[in-house]
Design a protein around this nucleic acid. Structure first.
Lengths: 213, 213
DNA sequence: AATTTAATGGGTGTTTTTCCCCTTTTTTGA
DNA sequence: TCAAAAAAGGGGAAAAACACCCATTAAATT
């Protein structure tokens, strides 16, 4: 049986190397190389013979994150299968990643045997999902506010400023809008996101990666 | 040369196993066993022949976190050397961990060679520190609000409620205190933590693990 | 061309938050 | 045990946040 090649994209070097060591210990898989972020990966892929069978991709990375990178891979290298690897159990993130074209989504607290199984199944069937992730997906489909909340750029900008300990007056100045418009943004978002006050906005923003700590 | 034994304490199983695979590939080290949290570790340590030379300890874990666990290890098994392993670059966390008795603090984005070096040096000298962490420590010593911020239980309770989208009136009722006392808590904390408003409290709480999303 | 929808902003009021200065009670430590 | 410090509570006022109303304009739909 031939050996399949894996590329690992993960910004924490130690984890990257640790997972590489693990993958290399699997019977039919070997690590081709590792990258620290999406940008580095795209550069490497341009070189011939650098195309792996599977990419293990972290979701949260600087420079070019897993979602954006996967999107690009799907379009430019559709034959490569991407498996997301993340601590994020967040519904929205998982859905985004799968929409972007990931063939699987592994939470970082799975066993190594599951990782090996995921690699094997992905080679064989083209995809693999754990029960955990499947359940999250099913729940989120029944859930009102999972996929469909779509914030506008201007609203996101407003939220980020709110998270930065600014008053609405200050935000209005920064965004070149009347305080009254900001009032409207706030009222709107409170309703749309179902929160009670600014704190709720901040929590939402952090949970959904809109505002980074 | 004899082989030194390592125990890994890390809640994300895959990472735990991946790091184990890495450590086992080092010349003079082998993994004795792995644990998912501090509680599990303390149970295992009670069995004879389960005492490792070094414990690689994650800082953020459920049940019994790295700081508390390290504190206990220091008192009960002072001969075991604990090296903290974390993504947290947060000054306060690092200082807490070192105060608790950790002999080293590795950020999760170090190279595997550094991990091996840290293990070797810790066996040889009893401690190891990367330049990164040393710099953070030096900076934090010159910094006013690094190590000395010590929140009282009641203050932490107040902050958690603030993070829960409650008004101060509601918090006062919940904590059986006068709204005016809550006023005092707030004023105090704003000054102590150097924030401008409730949002600042929320950010501080999330950054420092006081409030979990 | 007519209608809807989205973005902007105004008016007016209530509630909450924030700030500053103060007293009383309880706890702590020397 | 006595003084100091910390915790709890208070008054009053200004600022900010929140709620709900509605008007205008521009853009998108139909």
């Amino acid at each position: 049986m031939k050996t399949h090649t894996i590329v690992i994209v993960e910004d924490h070097i130690l984890l990257s190397q640790a997972i590489a060591s693990l993958v290399d210990s699997f019977k039919d898989f070997s690590v081709l190389y590792t990258c620290k972020n999406g940008k580095e990966l795209l550069t490497k892929l341009k070189t011939p013979n650098n195309i792996p069978d599977i990419i293990l991709m972290d979701v949260n990375m600087p420079i070019l994150n897993g979602i954006e990178t996967t999107e690009i891979i799907k379009n430019e290298y559709p034959e490569i299968k991407v498996i997301a690897l993340s601590v994020e159990e967040n519904d929205v993130t998982i859905i985004k990643m799968l929409k972007a074209g990931a063939k699987g989504y592994l939470l970082k607290d799975v066993e190594k045997d599951i990782l090996e199984l995921a690699l094997i199944e992905t080679i064989k069937n083209g995809y693999y999902h754990t029960k955990d992730v499947s359940n999250i997906l099913i729940n989120s489909l029944n859930d009102d506010d999972s996929g469909k909340i779509q914030l506008k750029d201007r609203e996101i900008e407003f939220i980020i400023h709110t998270c930065s300990e600014m008053t609405y007056k200050e935000i209005a100045e920064k965004m070149f809008l009347s305080p009254k418009t900001i009032d409207g943004y706030r009222d709107n978002l409170f309703q749309k996101l179902n929160v009670k006050n600014r704190i709720g906005l901040v929590l939402y923003a952090i949970k959904n990666g809109i505002y980074k700590l």
